[in-house]
């Protein structure tokens, strides 16, 4: 009874939300989300390279081409940004100062991976997208090794 009265009062009171975590709840970190986003970047880069413009001046064909091209670029942009955000969460929230002793190259790896995300946005560059996948794989290996595990690197495509 008392509890339901208290609950009813509380439900009417404005309450500000305070988070116990900076991102996900209860330490659920997994480099898989960065990997999926990075794979999407590579996939969109390949599709952009393979996309041939129409021949001639057919307006409808050009409209379709421009629409598809724009969509591929938009998804590449968005997924590269998502990769960067997922990596930054792992870097700044999951990895702790004590991990540096085991992985002295940790900061350099994340910094370069974040730079590759930007390079994939700026360019249509398959080599950079593949390099980004390699960087995410390296982070995957460090992450699981820090948990005493050796989960296999598996990609969706």
């Amino acid at each position: 009874m008392l509890r339901s009265v208290a609950q009813a009062i509380l439900n009417r009171l404005p309450a500000t939300q305070a988070a116990a975590h900076c991102d996900g709840p209860c330490g659920v970190y997994d480099p898989a989300s960065a990997r999926v986003a990075a794979e999407a970047v590579l996939s969109m880069t390949k599709k952009l390279i393979a996309l041939a413009p129409p021949e001639g001046n057919d307006a409808a064909a050009w409209a379709t081409y421009n629409n598809t091209f724009s969509r591929y670029v938009a998804v590449k942009e968005e997924q590269a940004q998502e990769t960067k955000e997922e990596l930054l969460i792992l870097w700044t929230d999951y990895f702790k100062p004590e991990h540096l002793a085991t992985f002295p190259e940790l900061h350099d790896t994340f910094w370069k991976a974040a730079k590759l995300c930007s390079a994939c946005k700026v360019n249509i560059d398959q080599a950079k997208a593949e390099e980004l996948m390699k960087a995410v794989e390296k982070i995957h290996t460090m992450f699981w090794s820090s948990k005493g595990r050796s989960d296999a690197w598996v990609t969706a495509s």
């Binding site: 116990a20 975590h21 900076c22 991102d23 209860c26 330490g27 700044t92 929230d93 702790k96 100062p97």
Partner: peptide
Amino acid sequence: LGDNPASSSDSRQ
């Protein structure tokens, strides 16, 4: 510090 050190992001970061 958070009460759950394995999961918390706090002054350690």
